[in-house]
Design a protein around this nucleic acid. Structure first.
Ligand SMILES: [Mn+2]
Ligand SMILES: [Mn+2]
Ligand SMILES: [Zn+2]
Ligand SMILES: [Zn+2]
Lengths: 141, 141
DNA sequence: TCCATAATGATAATGATTATCAATATCTGG
DNA sequence: CCAGATATTGATAATCATTATCATTATGGA
């Protein structure tokens, strides 16, 4: 939390009640993937008058300094989550039945990346989504 | 082309001038990823009065019977391309400098999929995007 | 405390996509 | 070929997430 606030200060961003509230919401929901509207609803429990524009602005800023990770799961809206420390983001397995999202680390992509580097690409990031039925929704065969 | 039109007929879809024009645009642009607006502009060369709503409807229909593949590359809009025959779609390497999109086949994911199947998942599809500098845009080190 | 300026909230604007609906085109069966 | 059931179209309004605008307020270093 304080480490993040330092990061904000170093970027010339002021620490406001709204930003603290949003940060707190994201930390209280570590592991979840929240939409801007969901963040707004939570943040209003602390800062009742906070507006949706501020939520968008803050989420955007926090993503730009890599405190948050922003993605979308085949829906209309973006979702945000606390970022890992690592360079690459993790990946997601999305159940087509219940919507449950399971996370997956990306070690297994090392081989592929090596192949691409060999072909001259300079890889910056990657994103993998797997659509599947999760073990409990899977049709019994 | 005729195989696709049969597919349409079998789904109770009529073959109209507009649909033929859109199909032709997609076939003339095999390998490219077109937005609805781009398809509209091309289709109007054949059917000047075609409306954007018809383009959206047709692209949607063609994607629903898997003639087209629909995706988005971190932009505001969807892009469509002629679908491969295979079960899974191919993947994309997007150059962060020039925007060039290179395609990649998905054999290398077999191992990962096997691991997930072992954990009880029933995999339906996956999507991988790699963001990189392409060989020609890569910063010389 | 003062003040330059960053941040906020309300609200208008945007841009892609979808819904509505009256008019038109397609196609099947006679 | 033709009529009629119905699928499709184009214009346009509506939607929905996100961004821009702008007057007002809050923050934090001097
Ligand atoms: Mn995640
Ligand atoms: Mn492609
Ligand atoms: Zn499930
Ligand atoms: Zn490039």
């Amino acid at each position: 939390m304080d480490k993040i606030k330092d990061k904000l200060k170093n970027s010339n961003y002021r620490i406001t009640g709204q930003r603290s509230a949003i940060l707190e919401v994201m930390m209280d929901n570590r592991g979840k993937h929240l939409s801007a509207e969901e963040v707004l609803a939570e943040a209003r429990k602390t800062v009742p008058n906070i507006g949706i524009a501020t939520v968008y602005r803050t989420l955007e800023k926090l993503a730009s300094i890599e405190v948050l990770y922003k993605t979308r799961f085949d829906e209309g809206c973006y979702r945000y989550e606390l970022s890992d420390e690592g360079i690459h983001q993790h990946h997601h397995i999305i159940c087509l039945e219940c919507g449950q999202i399971t996370e997956m680390e990306d070690d297994f992509l090392n081989t592929l990346e090596q192949q691409l580097e060999d072909r001259g690409y300079q890889i910056i990031d990657h994103e993998l989504k797997i659509y599947a039925y999760c073990p409990s929704c899977r049709k019994k065969v």
